[in-house]
Write a protein that binds this DNA or RNA. Structure first.
Length: 459
RNA sequence: GGCGUCGUACCCAAGUGGUCUAAGGGAUCGGUUUGCAAAACCGCUAUUCGUCGGUUCGAAUCCGACCGACGCCUCCA
């Protein structure tokens, strides 16, 4: 199946055609770095990573940006009210974001630009918009004039009569007009930059518009973000770029749905968040990642620990399978892709259908387990398995391959296990079972296989 | 108020006009296996897809109404 995505602009699945043959340009809105990202934020970031990996799987070279929003009201609040330094605060949370991204197996982006390091380009961009007559200055605030841009409203049906907007204190001409530059106020403190219109700072929509065009170009292939950014953020971002440059900014707009917590969207504003670091004390990064990938990116998902437990069990099942097929000695040359491989790739190419793809992988596990179970495992099937496991893991990244620490079995556990083995050989079942219970209490499971007992650390 | 998304088994979750008496995972129960377990395998668990109508030879899938959940219109992944 050809690669296709659901495009938020047309509300349809569309076949993906890249601007250039080889390279694909992708922009994803990144975190605002005033505190730690939560699992809901990471749903979107893992979605970016999924998109990235599926593009790579399709043979594209991906050039992508995930920006760091380090100029924002909440950052300014924290800096001015808590006596922390601007850089100190933003770089601390930027670091946490990048570290956690890596923990959860997100591939690094080509660029992670900070808004604060591209101010002069933003000023030039705004100047150009003013010169074009689509932006105006009211007391040092620069606004985009939505009435001067005929295509405003690509993502929503705009009905001016039904806007329930805030009071227009700043004097915008039209309700939908939005800020490109915000004039300095007392509460901004030291956080300010000089411009032709006096001191102030760029507004969020402009930050992304400029970072995207500066680093990737005037036209990009894919722009993505969480669904809450569709309007007004992405509307405003693309309005600026398209009004200025006269071309389509992004060909495909992809939006991921929210993670719901206690029947509300999980968000920093609502305060109902769960941080990655908290969840990692109880669940592995692989479990969190599989949880996020086990429903489709465009459907709402309610968070629950039950789901994480289910994901954890899936991971166990996958890992047992990987261990059981005994791949070490297999040479993977010259085998055709099986039906499973093709179905798996088709599912991913069909708008990143990870639940479907996961189903195909489990079907495959079942097929191979059947063969193992009745001793009809062939080299051919072993090779198929190795290829498919590699393929699966290149997208899902939930098989713990660097498990040297997992393979390590403490001496005391080993001793108890060999003692149990000895008791079993002497048919001392009661003693053997007692030892198994002891080992269990210490956090290890025993599986008796044809090749002797196997120790597995409990999660 | 306006705009939009969604409602599939005990739980989660694909499928969006015929191959659907609906994939896959978890859970339960029964079986094979095992010294007993565990794991693996087999079987059972939705003739039904929020409700009620309509279109169609045919609908979970299209249309309408209603009920329910959530999101956006203000910062937000």
């Amino acid at each position: 199946m050809k690669l296709q995505f659901y495009n938020s602009v047309t509300s349809k699945k569309e076949e993906f055609k890249s601007l250039s043959d080889k390279e694909v340009l992708v922009y994803g809105c990144g975190p605002t770095v005033y505190n730690s990202p939560h699992i809901g934020n990471f749903r979107t970031f893992v979605f970016y990573d999924l998109l990235n990996r599926v593009l790579l799987q399709n043979g594209y070279v991906v050039k992508n940006v995930i920006n760091i929003t380090d100029i924002d009201d909440k950052i300014i609040d924290r800096v001015n009210n808590e006596g922390v330094g601007f850089k100190e605060l933003t770089q601390k949370y930027e670091r946490i974001f990048l570290d956690q991204s890596s923990t959860i197996n997100i591939l690094p982006s080509t660029f992670n630009p900070r808004a604060s390091e591209h101010i002069s380009e933003m000023i030039d961009f705004i100047k150009a918009l003013m010169a074009k007559g689509v932006a105006y200055n009211i007391d040092g605030n620069i606004f985009f004039d939505t009435k001067e841009y005929s295509k405003y409203g690509k993502f929503v049906n705009i009905d001016d009569d039904n806007l329930s907007r805030e009071d227009n204190e700043l004097g915008k001409k039209h309700p939908n007009d939005f800020a490109l530059w915000k004039a300095w106020k007392d509460s901004d403190g030291e956080i300010t930059w000089e411009s032709d219109w006096g001191n102030g700072r760029p507004a969020w929509h402009t930050e992304c518009a400029v970072l995207g065009t500066q680093l990737l170009g005037d036209s990009i292939d894919i722009h993505c973000g969480g669904i809450d950014l569709k309007f007004p953020h992405h509307e405003n971002e693309s309005a600026q770029v398209e009004a200025l440059l006269g071309n389509k900014f992004a060909n495909y707009w992809l939006h991921s749905e929210h993670l719901i917590f206690d029947s509300e969207k999980m968000s920093k504003s609502l305060g109902n968040t769960l941080s990655i670091s908290d969840l990692l004390t109880k669940y592995s990064a692989e479990t969190l990642r599989l949880f996020l990938l086990s429903s489709h990116y465009r459907s709402k998902v309610s968070f629950s620990e039950k789901k994480l437990d289910d994901s954890s069990k899936m991971i166990d099942k996958i890992n047992r399978f990987v261990n059981n097929v005994d791949l070490a000695t297999i040479d993977i040359n010259g085998v055709d892709y099986s039906r499973f491989h093709l179905d798996f790739l088709d599912a991913l190419n069909d708008d990143l259908n990870t639940p479907e793809a996961l189903g195909v992988f489990f079907d495959f596990i079942n097929t191979v387990n059947k063969n193992i179970n009745n001793d009809s495992m062939t080299d051919d099937l072993r090779i198929q398995s190795k290829i498919f496991i590699n393929l699966f893991n290149s997208i899902f990244c939930v098989i713990n391959t660097s498990s040297s620490d997992k393979m390590f079995i403490p001496k005391d556990i080993q001793n108890l296990a060999s003692l149990r083995e000895e008791m079993r050989s002497k048919f001392e079942w009661n003693e053997a079972d007692k030892l198994r219970q002891m080992i269990d209490n210490l956090g290890w499971l025993i599986e008796d296989t044809k090749d002797g007992q196997k120790l597995i650390q409990k999660k």
